[in-house]
Design a protein around this nucleic acid. Structure first.
Length: 575
RNA sequence: GGGCGCGUAGCUCAGUCGGUAGAGCAACUGGCUUUUAACCAGUAGGUCGAAGGUUCGAUCCCUUCCGCGCUCACCA
């Protein structure tokens, strides 16, 4: 948005708090300029209702912030306080006109309305009318895109379930007809009317009664292009949700994914739990945390980067099968696949191991795909995938050798390769190995595929393979080059766990925890049964299932840089 | 942080090889009872992101800045 479209902070100071009105107005005298009290008027407007005895404004009047149109609206005495830059003076003027006619533009009560989708289903087609054809019903929603024929007006009415065309006819709406101009696209209305079709067969409700439920003083987006500014779509998701095609569906699908997962896990006798978001030690993953502070306790706390260590405490606690839909926070850069806060499903199951976790991934992915799309077939970035199990299993170390031409633990060749890739040579060896690996392999994993048996060094919380202690019982699941999940047989040896924690802390890596989580080690000392654990990135799974190419498209309110002060700012905030 | 790109009417965008700007939609006025991006006629609406420089003259050229996007880096 161009900066000029935003009101400056000065706008709000143009208002008198004591009268609640524009100070320009009080100086008004008939035929004189509202703003400077000089007599002449070179850009006086000649039409529209006015509560000012004169709306004339001379060319020498100081140019008001927000432009002349907004200034004129202020000069009329309203809005009662300054509005954001998107409030339209003409619409604001209609508020007053409505009140004059005894109509509350923001009534307290709504109406009992039927879902439009259900009404459409019952209405049938003009060739084959359904049981609701000719019936009178009440609908409620947002009206858009008016088409005015003089004695007939059409507009679509939207509710969450769908949209239907409304027809207003002069002959059928005697009471409301004179007020039709007070309605605008974007308004919330209730329509009572008779269901039928137009000559072209368009399902239509012919209104017999109209009730304004809430006036929209901000105009909806341009009707043909809609909201095209991506940033604006994310910032004003409340508009995007009804103004852009398919947006609401994405979030309905997201909801379906979560409820499917819950149902699925409950069927497997899992318990849904909630563990802390405020952590004294940021553990359970390698990531930089957000830091916050608790005043009363006088301590530094971290927003959780993963719920893992708490959930495993619950396995020690005997809850046996637990899961959490966890919002995690990582202080990292943004990308099409990374948002600073993201949702992860984590689950832990006693007596299970990572092979059982593979099975769970397959169950969950298949069920979610069917729930959302009715099929396991998906298309992502133009390529087709099938989420039907079983998924291929590929060994990390073998794939490493295959792709790179040398073994994962061949340090000299690893360093040479890292140098070729321009990686920071100071990076810790195992991290370097993973970076080298991902440079080639990560995106190439079309999948669905389980990449399994990682070098133990990059799996501080996973159990070693009994037959090869250099490898960990861990897998990540990839589809379309995206890492969707991560699982392992959980390490439950407190001594080994303590050793790995200390090793991690010693690296001083900003992504490693700052101190050993001794309380967690102590929990393991009480004995944790063998267990499998799994994390699934819900945002990425939803991306995959909806074909969204960026994580922002599956987050209702993705993290955005705050707007500069003064933009769409609440004028009250200045006081 | 590096690279590329964008910023013109409320919205979506043209345009000016340097002479202070146009269209469609939205708004307003008039017409129209079956449209659906309705249509027809008219009106109004812009410090061309900001500041500086070059120039007789800058929205256009140059510099800097601001904002945003894409991308690289960063990010198990």
């Amino acid at each position: 948005m161009p900066a000029s479209a935003r009101p400056s902070a000065r706008t709000s100071r143009s208002w008198s708090r004591s009268t609640g009105r524009c100070r320009w107005r009080r100086a008004t005298a008939p035929r004189a300029c509202c703003a400077c009290r000089r007599g002449a008027s070179s850009w006086a407007s000649s039409s529209g209702a006015s509560c000012c005895s004169s709306r004339t404004v001379c060319a020498r009047a100081p140019e008001p912030p927000g432009g002349r149109a907004l200034f004129l609206a202020y000069a009329r005495g309203y809005p009662p306080r300054p509005m954001t830059e998107i409030a339209q003076p003409d619409r604001i003027a209609k508020l007053e006109e409505l009140r004059k006619q005894g109509i509350d533009p923001f009534p307290a009560r709504g109406v009992e309305a039927r879902p439009i989708h259900a009404v459409l289903a019952g209405l049938g087609t003009s060739a084959e009318p359904g049981p609701l054809a000719g019936e009178s019903v009440t609908l409620a929603g947002r009206m858009l895109n008016l088409r005015d024929f003089g004695k007939l007006i059409f507009f679509p009415l939207l509710d969450r379930s769908g949209r239907i065309q409304v027809g207003l006819q002069r002959d059928k709406l005697t009471e409301w007809w004179p007020r039709r101009k007070l309605l605008d696209g974007g308004d919330q209305v209730a329509i009572r009317g008779v269901l039928g079709h137009t000559q072209k067969g368009e399902p239509t409700i012919w209104a017999t009664e109209v009730r304004l439920l809430a006036k929209a003083v901000a105009a909806p987006p341009e009707k043909w292009h809609g909201m095209t500014d991506k940033e604006l779509r994310y910032r004003r998701r409340y508009v995007d949700l009804w103004a852009s095609e398919g947006v609401r569906e994405v979030f309905e699908k997201r909801s379906a994914v979560l409820s499917t997962i819950r149902r699925c896990l409950e069927e497997q006798n899992y318990l849904e739990v909630e563990t802390p978001t405020l952590h004294p030690i940021a553990g359970g993953a390698a990531a930089r945390p957000f830091v916050t502070h608790h005043n009363a306790l006088g301590v530094e706390l971290f927003l959780r980067i993963a719920p893992e260590l708490y959930l495993k405490r619950l396995i020690v606690g005997g809850l046996e099968r637990v899961f959490e839909v966890s919002r995690n926070f990582r202080n990292e850069g943004l990308s099409p696949r990374h948002n600073p806060e993201f949702t992860m499903l984590e689950l832990y199951e006693a007596q299970a191991d990572y092979r059982r976790m593979m099975q769970l991934v397959e169950i969950l992915f298949e069920r979610c795909a069917r729930a959302v799309n009715g099929t396991t077939q998906i298309t992502f970035r133009g390529k087709r995938y099938d989420l039907r199990p079983p998924y291929q299993v590929v060994s990390y170390t073998e794939l490493f050798r295959e792709q790179q031409g040398f073994a994962y633990d061949d340090e000299p060749r690893l360093r040479a390769r890292a140098a070729e890739l321009g990686l920071d040579p100071a990076t810790e060896r195992w991290k370097l190995m993973d970076q080298v690996f991902e440079s080639k392999v990560g995106d190439a994993l079309e999948g669905p595929v389980f990449l399994s048996d990682y070098p133990v060094e990059i799996c501080p919380l996973a159990k070693q393979k009994p037959e090869n202690p250099r490898l960990a019982e861990r897998f990540e699941v990839f589809v379309a080059g995206m890492e969707l999940g991560n699982a392992f047989s959980e390490l439950n040896d407190p001594f080994e766990q303590a050793r790995r924690f200390e090793e991690q802390v010693a690296t001083k890596d900003p992504e490693a925890p700052g101190e050993v989580d001794w309380d967690y080690v102590q929990a393991l000392e009480y004995g944790m049964p063998p267990a499998g654990g799994l994390g699934i990135g819900i945002d990425r799974l939803v991306m995959l299932l909806t074909g969204a190419e960026t994580i922002r498209d599956v987050l209702l309110f993705p993290t955005m840089k705050p707007l500069p002060r003064g933009a769409a700012e609440d004028p009250q905030a200045e006081e």
